[in-house]
Simulated assay, not measured.
Amino acid sequence: MPDTTALLVAASGQHGPGNTLRIVLIVSIVGCALLAWFLLRGYGNQDSND
């Protein structure tokens, strides 16, 4: 089975994980922001059911 990393580097024509790492970082930051919004949105109006 061929090495996946070597195939990706050869196919992209670039050396190193520059664009891939940039995309992974951006997606993780956006994902963390959405997760924080989802978890914290329930804390806004808890005592309106009195």
Rank of each mutant, 00 (worst) to 15 (best):
H15T: 10
L25K: 10
Q46D: 07
D50R: 01
L34W: 12
V27L: 06
V24R: 15
G42N: 12
I23Y: 06
D50N: 04
G18N: 03
V27H: 01
D50Q: 02
R41E: 11
L8R: 12
R22A: 05
T5P: 01
S48K: 08
V24S: 15
R41W: 01
N45T: 04
T20W: 05
V24F: 14
A6M: 02
C32Y: 12
L40D: 04
P2A: 14
D3L: 05
A11R: 01
C32K: 14
H15D: 15
A33W: 10
L34F: 15
A33Y: 05
I26L: 04
A33P: 03
M1T: 04
I23H: 04
A10K: 04
Y43H: 11
G16H: 06
T5V: 08
N19F: 10
R22C: 05
A11M: 00
I29Q: 09
V9Q: 10
N19S: 01
L8M: 12
L39G: 01
P2C: 08
G16A: 03
Q14G: 01
A33K: 00
D3R: 07
D47K: 04
G42L: 10
Q46P: 11
L25C: 02
V30Y: 08
G42I: 13
D50H: 00
I29Y: 05
Y43T: 06
I26C: 00
F38T: 00
Q46E: 13
G13Q: 01
P17I: 02
S12T: 12
T5E: 08
A33T: 11
A10Y: 02
A36D: 09
S12D: 07
L35K: 00
G42D: 15
G44L: 10
L25I: 14
L8Q: 06
L7F: 13
P2S: 15
S12Q: 09
Y43E: 07
A10S: 13
G18H: 09
G42S: 13
P17T: 00
Y43D: 07
D3I: 12
V27F: 13
L40S: 02
W37T: 11
G42T: 13
L34E: 03
G31W: 14
A6P: 06
V9W: 03
A6T: 08
L25R: 07
R22D: 04
A11Q: 05
I23R: 06
L40N: 01
V27A: 11
N49M: 05
I26T: 06
V30P: 00
P2V: 14
G44N: 11
H15V: 10
Q46M: 06
V27G: 02
R41A: 03
F38W: 15
L8P: 08
G31S: 07
W37I: 15
G31I: 08
N19T: 04
H15E: 12
R41F: 04
V30L: 15
I23E: 04
G31D: 03
W37L: 14
F38G: 01
L21F: 06
N49L: 04
G16T: 02
V24A: 13
S48W: 07
P17E: 05
V9H: 02
V24K: 13
Q14E: 11
D3E: 14
R41Q: 13
A6N: 10
R41D: 07
T4N: 11
V27Q: 03
N49D: 06
A10H: 04
G31L: 15
D47Q: 11
A6E: 15
N49T: 06
W37H: 09
S48M: 08
I29S: 08
R22K: 08
P2T: 14
L35W: 11
D47A: 02
L21H: 02
D47R: 03
T4F: 15
P17W: 06
